[in-house]
Simulated assay, not measured.
Amino acid sequence: MSQVNVLYTSTEGNTEAFIDKLALEAEKAGDDFHPRAIGDETEVAVEKQPYVALVPTYLTGGTGTGPEVTEIFTNALGEYIEEGNNQRYLRGVIGSGNRNFNDQYILTAKRYAKKFNVPLIDHYELRGSKFDAARIYPKIKAALESKHGA
């Protein structure tokens, strides 16, 4: 049995729906699954265990990938990770988005991975499928077992 810690933000419910699919995978594996939603109202805690972050893509400011394009709705998660030593326990990022947005698909996750110097573990579109969850869940566990960032 593994403890699987996941921080996420969900604005439209898509990430929350994917968390539910990951929870089913954790149950099959007999793991202790700990997802926590982070939003503007979340009080910052001191992270003491490795975790991964699931981040959707919500952008404003253009159609490219340059600095004029800024994140919206996911800022609380990024700020939470930056607080104190919380970044130290981040082991990777999983992105979601809409492939219709071309270069901007999972751009927020790519930026988080670069900013926090962790791997982009994987990605899925919109709410994700049960097949995405089955593919991604073992990668989450592997990332949590790694020493990257420690």
Results as ranks from 00 to 15, higher is better:
59 L>T: 06
3 Q>D: 11
29 A>R: 05
6 V>F: 03
1 M>D: 00
75 N>D: 14
132 D>C: 05
32 D>A: 13
95 G>K: 11
128 G>K: 00
141 K>A: 03
23 A>K: 12
23 A>G: 12
38 I>E: 00
33 F>C: 02
50 P>Y: 03
10 S>H: 10
12 E>P: 11
42 T>C: 03
69 V>N: 03
93 V>Q: 04
86 N>R: 02
77 L>M: 09
43 E>P: 04
113 A>S: 15
72 I>H: 09
19 I>L: 09
52 V>I: 14
124 Y>H: 14
57 T>I: 07
52 V>F: 12
122 D>C: 03
68 E>H: 07
100 N>G: 15
4 V>A: 11
20 D>R: 13
113 A>G: 13
14 N>C: 12
101 F>Q: 00
143 A>M: 11
55 V>S: 12
19 I>A: 09
136 I>W: 07
28 K>S: 02
96 S>V: 01
114 K>F: 09
72 I>R: 13
46 V>E: 04
92 G>F: 03
75 N>E: 06
40 D>K: 15
129 S>N: 13
72 I>F: 05
73 F>P: 01
132 D>F: 06
148 H>S: 08
88 R>Y: 07
65 T>M: 08
93 V>A: 05
90 L>D: 04
144 L>C: 08
59 L>N: 03
4 V>K: 05
32 D>R: 13
135 R>N: 08
121 I>T: 06
103 D>N: 10
2 S>T: 06
134 A>C: 10
64 G>D: 00
108 T>I: 04
91 R>V: 09
82 E>V: 02
138 P>N: 09
22 L>P: 04
67 P>K: 15
65 T>G: 03
51 Y>S: 00
50 P>F: 07
49 Q>K: 15
137 Y>T: 04
141 K>E: 12
81 I>L: 05
8 Y>K: 02
43 E>I: 12
